[in-house]
């Protein structure tokens, strides 16, 4: 019993260090929609324009589809895939708490969907504008 005390203390210290690391790592990964707006504005070096974001989202750019072709022009609603007709959960954070909380997913979908609608990647300013608009929706 006596001998176990130092070991237990060491274990406890390891556990608290581990816990602190896990909390820090968790904090770094769990993002909020606002974090993405901040990130894209910083990358663009300019503030977002929600009005420009709305226009960008709802009008066809260079491709067959606009963002609204699948997400509708009211992204607080459920969308439908333009080709397969599969339901797509609402994109606006106010309507769907799961949206814009994972950087890997956000980057993946911007990459793919910008390619589909513009045949290129989106600029940081375009992403900031869209984020600004989505966050302004009630």
């Amino acid at each position: 019993m006596m001998r176990s005390t130092p070991f237990m203390e060491t274990d406890m210290r390891h556990i608290s260090i581990l816990a602190a690391l896990l909390i820090a790592a968790g904090g770094a990964h769990a993002e909020s929609p606002r974090d993405f707006l901040t990130r894209f504005e910083k990358e663009a070096g300019a503030a977002a324009s929600p009005e420009r974001g709305a226009r960008f989202f709802t009008t066809k750019q260079s491709g067959e589809w606009s963002c609204a072709s699948c997400h509708t022009d009211k992204p607080t609603q459920v969308g439908r895939h333009a080709k397969t007709d599969k339901a797509i959960t609402a994109l606006a954070p106010v309507a769907n708490a799961e949206r814009f909380t994972d950087a890997a997913k956000v980057d993946k979908w911007f990459r793919r969907n910008c390619n589909d609608t513009l045949s290129r990647l989106c600029t940081a300013q375009e992403k900031a504008d869209v984020m600004g608009w989505l966050l302004s929706l009630k």
């Binding site: 080709k83 990459r111 793919r112 589909d116």
Partner: peptide
Amino acid sequence: HFGTDASID
């Protein structure tokens, strides 16, 4: 992927 970008890691 049938006309759309479906790339993943």
